[in-house]
Design a protein around this nucleic acid. Structure first.
Lengths: 128, 128
DNA sequence: CCACTATTGATAAACGATTCGCAATAAAGG
DNA sequence: CCTTTATTGCGAATCGTTTATCAATAGTGG
């Protein structure tokens, strides 16, 4: 049966608390606040397990490796800051994208990624 | 000075003729019609060189490695077929995506990827 | 409190994609 | 037609990410 380990809970918490999709390495950094000895392998193992359970969702962005966010946030897209490289959720969706596809193509889904500067990085820039 | 080799021309042609972004391996397959002995390393070298020259553009899709298309096709997005995995250009753009970002975020750019079935794969399905 | 076994940490290994090293080849100018 | 040297083909090497191995550890039900 599945066991509730400190490691798994810390990983679950880290993703939930972050409020944005995290890289495995970021999950490790965050979860090590709770479980200092935590290893990257364990993070990978649990991210995969939690994803298969349907508790987490993997977020793929162009040219980036997988990040993880809690499942069940409904349809949304993402924003990546060009300065700090962090990824954030953005609500809403333009919708009606199927019309863009060439005739004869069936559109079933879509991904949108916005790029720019996040609030924090903009604030930091102004101070310089 | 830069030389015009059969290999480079074949690679350039392959990308131009394809009409869709190609993976290095796909470029190799196509260009080997013209230059049978062509090697993958040469494809990589030339794709990189042509990109730096501004003749080609690399296309990144979520979870995929880089594809290459001719530069200068203007702003557009891409469609990936879930069956054959090929990528196609789609014209047009919903525009006004900046409004989706959280307050305080500056949106500078965006990527849109559509997913579904391409015409060929839809046609093939009907025949079964 | 025990026994069972899922889980962990540490490290090596796998993996796919891309690049490098080098001798052999072949454009291009004279 | 030479000479120069950019370019090529091949295989090995690298890169970052992810997974496998395996002995040691620690949840969990009884």
């Amino acid at each position: 049966m599945e066991r509730n380990t400190r490691q798994r809970n810390a990983i679950r918490e880290a993703v939930a608390q972050a409020g944005r999709p995290l890289l495995p390495q970021e999950v490790l950094n965050a979860a090590q606040m709770q479980v200092p000895g935590l290893s990257l392998a364990t993070v990978y193992r649990n991210l995969r397990a939690l994803q298969e359970e349907g508790e987490l969702r993997s977020v793929m962005l162009p040219g980036e490796s997988a990040r993880y966010e809690p499942a069940g946030h409904g349809h949304h897209h993402h924003f990546q800051c060009r300065q700090c490289a962090r990824v954030f959720e953005v609500e809403g969706c333009p919708g009606n994208l199927a019309r863009l596809a060439p005739p004869g193509f069936a559109v079933e889904d879509h991904d949108i990624t916005l790029y720019g500067r996040c609030r924090e990085c903009l604030a930091a820039e102004r101070k310089t």
